[in-house]
Design a protein around this nucleic acid. Structure first.
Length: 476
DNA sequence: TGAAATGTTGGGGCG
DNA sequence: ACGCCCCAACATTTC
């Protein structure tokens, strides 16, 4: 066989970037590289990629393809089968990829590894999407941490700082698989109804937009991050979560540049942000050690919890028509933009699980479908955290009051007015409690309660008491 | 990374 | 002048 025909396959997964991609760098340094992406969802039983994620992925792949001189090779179907064909058609020298940690991705990896072992093909995987490998951060008993605080302390204090990010390779020889008829547009990524046209204008997707978001965040938002991050009307968050999920930016790049920015004046802000990045790690590690947590309560005593199955309430929550302005604003932000401010995510999640007494899995499923940053680890763990059944979870009796939360974190009502235009004329005094406004005030604001904006769909006090009762029914 | 209920304190009005 | 009561304002406990 002619040695010149030998190719190295680099399998892109949730690492859709060229910079700080150790496996890709190694591949292009060793020879001609055939970059591939496999859309492999058929075997996924739970949590097939949601609509918003698929929309994001479409653009992310387009961007990656441009970075790869339009040499990205697209496949659709079972990963193992795709590799079987590739091995048959090409003279494959080695196969490299970046590890992924979601249960079905691990199954894919195992199946592919087995195949490659059988064919005696060299393969190697790399860590490109976590600061610390699961299994690297363990208690002295070699167990996974069950509490974030010691996890974070140990991870920072006892382990080396995350490695420095790598630059993008400067030279590369890329190969197109000429036998393959598929391209990005042939994947089932964009639905027929173009619900996403508005989103197209809200997000710039790809590796260089991700870098731009990061530098913009460092310059304009990080300096007041600690103070501002809880206020949804203030642009204070990094907006990096979706880029991190698909790997258009690596956590190492983010970690490293935040640390570089963090002078003593910014220390509090830098620390607060790095802590959030560490929560992401913590959740990935949890998922790694307990893959069932996407649908199973981490605390088994919650298995008997008396959740209500109420389609009417669930739908009202999904559509942002509960009658509680901060809840509805958040749910509409999600629907319109594919994201939701972190503080508001906690408020709407508390409302669904506690005031509506609806199963956290229903909330997780909705978020999974609608969030552009939908991430199995963060989504599942955060829902369990709010519901009280997770690792290091909020106590069940911590029930957010949507009126008080709105008064506290959207005091001027800017966020609410933005996402609920039908309330925008309401005076601030009644903006958080429209049902308390007199008829004349409502009229003056052009509101017909029950018509143009809903009457509260559940009673706060009664639902709170009901939730506490349900909690007590679990016993200790 | 709550909220409500309950407890405590201290200033001021008032008999 | 003094004690009593009221009630913010704050602290603690409970869910």
């Amino acid at each position: 066989m002619n040695n010149n025909n030998r190719v190295i396959i680099f399998w892109f997964r949730n690492d859709l970037r060229l910079s700080d991609n150790p496996g890709f760098s190694q591949a292009v340094s060793e020879g001609k590289v055939m970059p591939i992406y496999i859309f492999d969802q058929e075997s996924v039983e739970l949590f097939k990629m949601g609509s918003a994620s698929r929309w994001w992925l479409y653009h992310s792949l387009k961007s990656l393809d441009r970075s790869l001189q339009e040499k990205l090779n697209i496949y659709h179907g079972c990963s193992q089968e795709v590799f079987k064909k590739l091995l048959h058609l090409h003279n494959v020298e080695a196969i490299y990829w970046s590890r992924c940690y979601e249960p079905y991705q691990r199954e894919q990896e195992d199946a592919v590894s087995l195949l490659l072992q059988q064919h005696k093909i060299k393969f190697q995987y790399f860590n490109a999407s976590l600061l610390w490998e699961p299994g690297q951060i363990l208690t002295t008993n070699r167990q996974a941490y069950q509490r974030f605080t010691p996890f974070y302390g140990e991870a920072i204090l006892q382990n080396h700082a995350p490695r420095a990010p790598l630059p993008a390779p400067t030279t590369m020889v890329l190969l197109k698989d000429t036998n393959n008829p598929l391209d990005i547009d042939s994947l089932p990524l964009l639905s027929k109804t173009s619900w996403y046209t508005k989103m197209d204008s809200l997000w710039a997707i790809g590796e260089s937009p991700a870098q731009y978001e990061l530098s913009h965040f460092l310059k304009t938002r990080l300096p007041l991050y600690h103070k501002n991050r809880d206020f949804p009307a203030i642009p204070s968050t990094s907006r990096l979560s979706a880029y991190l999920h698909f790997g258009e930016i690596s956590p190492h790049q983010v970690w490293h540049s935040v640390q570089q920015e963090t002078t003593k004046f910014l220390k509090k802000d830098g620390d607060a942000f790095l802590r959030e990045l560490a929560w992401r790690e913590f959740f990935y590690h949890q998922l790694f050690h307990f893959p069932k947590l996407t649908w199973k309560n981490v605390q088994p005593k919650f298995d008997g919890f008396p959740w209500c199955h109420n389609e009417v309430l669930l739908k009202a929550w999904q559509q942002g028509k509960t009658g509680y302005p901060i809840i509805d604003a958040g749910m509409r932000e999600l629907w319109q933009t594919g994201t939701m401010h972190n503080r508001v995510r906690m408020i709407v999640a508390s409302f669904l699980t506690k005031n509506m007494l609806i199963d956290w899995r229903d909330g997780a499923a909705w978020f999974w479908d609608t969030l552009v940053d939908a991430d199995l680890a963060s989504n599942s763990c955060n829902w369990q955290w709010v519901a009280g059944c997770g690792v290091d979870a909020a106590p069940y009796f911590r029930i957010f009051n949507p009126v008080l939360q709105a008064e506290k974190f959207d005091p001027e009502g800017i966020y609410i007015r933005h996402y609920i235009p039908e309330l925008s004329q309401l005076p601030k005094k009644f903006l958080f409690t429209p049902w308390l406004a007199s008829k004349s005030i409502l009229e003056g604001a052009g509101i017909l309660l029950g018509k143009t904006y809903p009457i509260p769909i559940v009673d706060l006090q009664l639902s709170r008491e009901r939730a506490l009762e349900a909690y007590h029914s679990l016993g200790k």
